[in-house]
Design a protein around this nucleic acid. Sequence first.
DNA 1: TAGATTGTTAATCGATTAACAATC
DNA 2: TAGATTGTTAATCGATTAACAATC
Lengths: 213, 213
Amino acid sequence: MLEIPKPTLGRLPLYYRALVTAADAGLEIISSAELGESAGVDSAQVRKDITYFGQFGRPGIGYNVPNLLLALEQILGLSNPNEAVLVGAGRLGMAICNYPGFTRFGLKIVAIFDIDPQKQGQQVDGLEIFPLWRLERIVKKLGTQIGIITTPASSAQGVAKMLIASGVQAIWNFAPVNLKVPPDVILRNEDLAVGLATLSHYLSSGHGSQKLK
Amino acid sequence: MLEIPKPTLGRLPLYYRALVTAADAGLEIISSAELGESAGVDSAQVRKDITYFGQFGRPGIGYNVPNLLLALEQILGLSNPNEAVLVGAGRLGMAICNYPGFTRFGLKIVAIFDIDPQKQGQQVDGLEIFPLWRLERIVKKLGTQIGIITTPASSAQGVAKMLIASGVQAIWNFAPVNLKVPPDVILRNEDLAVGLATLSHYLSSGHGSQKLK
DNA sequence: TAGATTGTTAATCGATTAACAATC
DNA sequence: TAGATTGTTAATCGATTAACAATC
């Protein structure tokens, strides 16, 4: 399969969401213009993006909603559910455990870890919080693929090491720090400070009117 | 002042963080190579990015840490603190209220709103949760510039309208939905589902080794 | 047939990378 | 002077936009 550009990959979830909405509304067919309108993307861009993973439209007609939805699930890897462990049971961690958007994207958190003995043994949404020293054995046993880091910045690198030693293939990092990981580990940084700084810049520079990201 | 490219703007907070660390360590001078190493960015890119807002380095020497730090605070608009109201007192909202990274970036949440009467009147970090109908008057009175939306997707557009009617200039949207706002309002979407979908794609496609974002 | 809309090509735009003269 | 490192230019790379022939 050909390589999908990163910017395109970032828009696919937007299309996916727009299509789910359309499907819920009973729509069978959607045009690139309609899809773009709903996702906030130019129609030419929509068509270009879609062709990166196939031909799903019919000239003069549009795209078949269920077909395209299925294709997107494929390409986004949502067909096989993703299991993850979460390290750091603070508020951000708990928010992520509960984030409603994730069920749709097939994320299942299977264990939570925290270094604080106070929290250990507590239940969160039916999941027990385990002590950090049990991480390696549990992750190995479950064969979990994704590790989510919601610890303070100071502990994040250590946690990343543990996760990698335990065999996770991907790390989703919410700690505000630049993690070093081996090249075969997929790393995604979700850095809220970047978003804030961007807003702050545009506010103080007086340029309104930007659609950021 | 010349326009700073968006990708550059996204990297500035990383430099800022690296510089804070360097300053804390008592470093006076830092090279583009060191700064890049710390921020996870190529050194040529670092130099290019910095020149978008001035000349702060000395050939053969490097950059003066305090100077560059100051310049970044300027350009990121951190010199004037940013006040925000937050709408949606769920777990994500609470997590954001507590996110430690924000203090450094000068964000101050001055009021919280929620539609749920159960939550109204409760205190969160010394802030009372107000009913939604009081939003307009309070925001107008405080002159708040930023509105943070952490409601479910279904209510987000309505909340955005209220915020805009109340005079906020920027919206930081965490609800998984494509908001429509007038062109003079700055909109930043923080979409966790995009991050997840990206991870999921790389996991299922078998390409490891990507540093995503 | 006439109107609509795709898939794709070509043109434009913008960002990254590489290289190096100027400077310390 | 020799070595280091910036700021900047030019070359490369990649993404977006525009246009349109092909198709329904």
